[in-house]
Every structure is written in C-alpha cells, then in structure tokens.
C-alpha cells in the first residue's frame, strides 16, 4: 500500500508537469497578441514592443516555459494581463464560491441519485424502475446549459421561487447546484441500482432473510450501507465532470467562481489567468482521482493495489 501510494503520487506529479507543458504550448499558439490587447488599439508599435519585452513574450519558447514553471513551483502564477491583480489572488478570491457550488452539487446528486437507484432496484423490472431509469437516461443526455436555462425560466422567472442569478444566500445556490448535479444524479442512480441488485443477490442477505429479520430492516441496515460504499468511492472522479461543468453553470447563473473567471479570461485572451485556472482544475482532478484510488481499496479490500 505504501509503495503504491508513493508511486501514484509520483505519477500524479508527472501528469501535472505534463499538463503545464501542454497548456503552455496551446496558449503559445493562440494567434491573439496579448501586448496589443493591453496597449489598446491606439498604441504605437513601439509601445506594443515595449510591453512585449516587459512580459518576456519575445523570449524563445523554452525560456518562457522555464520561467513559468520555476515561478509556479514557488506558488507564483503570474499577473493577469487585463486585471491589475495576481492570478493567485484572483483564483483565491473565487475558489470558495466554486467549492461551495460543487459541494452543493455533490449533495444534490447523491440525494437524487441514491434515492432513485434504491427505489429502482427495489422495484426492479416494474413500471417504477423503467420510469426512473428513463429519467436517469434523460439526465445524462441533457446539456447543462439547457437544464440551467429551463430551471431559471420555470423556477425563477415564472414561479419566482428563486433569484434569477447571483450569489450570497441559500436560495441563490439551489438552482445552480441542481443544474451541476443533474448529470451526476443520472450516473449515480444507475450505479446505485446495479450495486443494490448485486448486494441483494448476496448470501448474507439470504441468511438475514432466513433468520427472519424484517424486510425493511434488512434493506436499511444491511443492503443499503453495503451498496452505497462502492458509490462513495466514485465521488473523487466527479471532480473532473464538475471542472468542465462549472464553466457553463457559472456563466448561465452569473456565479462568481473560477468557471466564470476562466470563461471571461478565454474571451479576453488573458493567458496567465487561463493557465492558472487550468492548473488549479487539473490539480483538483488529479487529487480527486487519487482520492478515489485510495478510498476504493479501503472500502473494499478485494480491490487490489498493485
């Protein structure tokens, strides 16, 4: 286990290093000239050239990359080209909002997903099961912007139950959280259903039945806890889905998180900010996968750690 842990940590560090390189190459290829954007339309060629020199944009690729990497390792992600602020400050000021949204989305998808999966498994092959599974298929087939806009239309514009967008109170978080968790609810309900069906077929359940335990008690005390465990191990992997999802959800709801920051930065070619958010997202995804890798064998010792 210890060797496995060390190897996975090492691999993760290499993956992050690779991501810095790939992202840097991609953004190096962006045809827009950041110096021209900073200087503005009316600036002279000389001013633009000066800004290019200041930012080090005239240096060869590998020198620029090396400078970025050594700064990054010291926790310095550079300065935003367009906002007068350090990238790390911009991200730090917006990260709490995104974390709150993701946490709320995890709660939402677990509540919906697990409930649907449990009910479907207990009503296996009956109309309720078919209906719920069709719902879960729809939820994994619906783009987040469509769900978000429809929820806004029905619950904010027409019914007025929730605000149209923004940030601050509990009612602000409800619709964005449902939108972000909708896809996951579909996946969790299908996984929970098949996990429940697996556990229901196992010997200890039959033993419990043979001992004459009440059916409700068997399901609540024995089946559900065992069926949930492998699902919980998957939460880490969700981070990858969320990191894509927040770009859309935050822009639909005007949620002031790092997804919105990334989207604004991409539109204005604010390269240091794009780099910064990509690195933070990738780190979160890698940590999420690590978490899943370590939690899974703890929960189920049959999963080997080679």
């Amino acid at each position: 286990m210890q060797a496995y842990l060390v190897r996975r940590l090492f691999e993760s560090a290499l993956i992050l290093l690779g991501i810095t390189l790939v992202t840097f190459i991609l953004l190096y290829l962006v045809p827009a000239d950041p110096a021209r954007q900073i200087a503005g339309r009316s600036a002279t060629a000389e001013t633009v050239q000066n800004i290019r020199d200041q930012l080090g944009l005239n240096d060869p690729f590998f020198i620029q990359y090396w400078r970025y990497l050594t700064a990054l390792l010291q926790g310095d992600m550079g300065r935003s080209y367009l906002q007068r602020a350090e990238v790390s400050e911009l991200i730090a000021s917006r990260l709490p909002a995104s974390l709150l949204l993701m946490l709320a989305a995890i709660v939402t998808e677990l509540i919906f997903g697990l409930t649907i999966g449990i009910v479907a498994a207990l009503r296996r092959n009956r109309p309720a099961d078919h209906g719920l599974m069709i719902f879960s298929f729809v939820s994994i087939s619906a783009p987040q912007f469509v769900i978000g806009i429809l929820l806004l239309y029905v619950f904010a514009v027409k019914l007025g139950w929730f605000p149209i967008g923004g940030y601050g109170t509990f009612s602000h978080v409800v619709l964005p959280a449902i939108t972000l968790g909708f896809l996951g609810a579909g996946w969790y309900s299908r996984m929970m259903r098949s996990s429940m069906i697996d556990v229901l077929g196992q010997d200890f359940v039959r033993t419990a039945q043979a001992k004459g335990l009440a059916k409700g008690r068997i399901i609540l005390r024995h089946v559900i806890p065992n069926a949930i465990l492998p699902i919980i191990a998957m939460i880490g992997i969700d981070i990858g889905l969320f990191m894509s999802g927040i770009v859309v959800v935050e822009s639909v709801f005007g949620w002031p998180g790092i997804g919105q920051l990334a989207w604004q930065a991409i539109q204005r070619v604010d390269i240091p900010v794009i780099m910064g958010v990509t690195m933070v997202s990738a780190t979160a995804i890698v940590l999420g996968n690590l978490l899943a890798d370590f939690v899974a064998p703890m929960i189920d010792p049959r999963i080997k750690t080679k």
Partner: peptide, 16 residues
C-alpha cells in the same frame, strides 16, 4: 495526462 485535463476548458481553448 489527457484524462486529467479539464475537458471543456481544453475544447474552448482549442476552439479559440
């Protein structure tokens, strides 16, 4: 490495 890339960000940057 590609698995750890935030997919939508990558697609948006490429499209841009």
């Amino acid at each position: 490495l590609m698995m750890a890339f935030p997919a939508l960000l990558l697609a948006i940057v490429l499209a841009a």
